[in-house]
């Protein structure tokens, strides 16, 4: 049984008569100890998806799913209180912007110990010791003095380490990292990712790495899920997807990577942006931007279907190994 089992998850915002679907019928299974990348442009719904898993989608947003289960427990049926016992303990999250993610009014130590207190209790002294250990584990030098520091006294990389320490404080079985390095300097990025991978291996926790950077997913994940406009458009083992993308969108993302542009004069890019509330097209959501668009794509939305071992793609004419559209 999968650790996290999501079937047809939908998150809607706005009026019930004309809702905006930020997440649109997503299926996703994560096994214990697995590292999965969720890749997509800004606005593809990947962050909202993770918030929905943690139960953090706020009032105007509506979450619905056929299944949303963690370790066999139906999250949508749990009481708010029972769900909070999971959130922050068994499932934890690291967010995008470390500089605004720590409460400016409290010390680092207070914020880490608070998590421990809520989920595990224990004495003040043991909590303090745990917090010290955690800071040491995420590679913060002189943890004792950092415990007393206020967030504005930390650099971005240091803050992200603190936030990671916070997230792993209660030994979660699932850690979701939402663009954990986007707001950081390039040199720090590699350190933070390395830290996340080390922690994942040591503790055997499942890791969902959300990113807009396919290369980053390729280096760190076993499996990748590509999202576009709230939908999963392709998923599969990272090596296979990288070698021969089945969906034109994945192909476009890959060819936009600098690495694949060797020898070419210009990098291939995908014209246009992810559709928003007002310009959602009919048929396949990608069709206005797709290189291989056909009449059928304009009229009929494609379904997600198998396109190889453990692979799925949402396309009427999935690409073959040579990158040409096939007719089914």
């Amino acid at each position: 049984m999968a650790l996290l089992d999501i079937e047809h998850l939908t998150v809607e915002f706005g009026a019930a008569s004309a809702p905006f679907r930020a997440v649109d019928g997503v299926d996703l299974q994560i096994d214990a100890g697995e590292v999965v990348g969720i890749v997509g442009e800004s606005g593809s719904g990947k962050s909202v998806l993770s918030l929905a898993v943690l139960g953090l989608v706020d009032f105007p947003g509506r979450v619905a799913a056929r299944t949303l289960a963690f370790d066999g427990q139906d999250l949508l049926r749990l009481s708010a209180r029972a769900r909070r016992r999971l959130t922050g303990k068994d499932m934890a999250m690291v967010f995008q912007d470390p500089m605004t993610s720590l409460n400016p009014c409290y010390t680092v130590g207070f914020q880490i110990e608070e998590t421990l207190r809520v989920h595990e209790g224990g004495s003040r002294a043991t909590r303090r010791q745990r917090a010290l250990d955690l800071l040491a584990q995420v590679g913060i030098p002189d943890p004792a003095s950092r415990l007393r520091a206020f967030p504005h006294q930390l650099s971005g990389g240091m803050s992200q380490r603190v936030l990671i320490a916070l997230a792993i404080a209660c030994n979660p079985r699932l850690l979701i990292a939402d663009e954990p390095t986007t707001a950081l300097d390039v040199t720090i990025q590699a350190q933070i990712l390395g830290l996340l991978r080390d922690l994942q291996r040591q503790r055997g926790m499942a890791l969902i790495l959300i990113t807009h950077d396919l290369a980053l997913a390729a280096e760190n994940c076993q499996r990748v899920v590509v999202m576009y406009a709230g939908q999963v458009v392709e998923s599969g083992p990272i090596a296979a997807v990288f070698a021969a993308p089945r969906h034109p969108y994945t192909r476009a993302l890959l060819s936009a990577l600098p690495e694949s542009g060797t020898g070419q004069r210009r990098l291939a890019t995908l014209a246009g942006v992810v559709p928003g509330q007002y310009d959602r097209p009919s048929g396949c959501l990608l069709h206005p931007r797709c290189l291989f668009v056909s009449e059928r794509c304009r009229l009929q939305p494609p379904g997600l279907r198998p396109v190889g071992p453990q692979r799925q793609a949402r396309c009427h004419t999935p690409l073959d190994a040579a990158g040409r559209p096939t007719d089914d």
Binding site: R85, F95, L102, V118
Partner: peptide, 20 residues
């Protein structure tokens, strides 16, 4: 953001509002 982080810790709404 830090309020979202506080909620992601699994704190009760009372604590999120009252403390954070």
């Amino acid at each position: 953001d830090y309020i979202r982080v506080a909620r992601a810790k699994g704190l009760s709404p009372l604590r999120v509002i009252g403390v954070h």
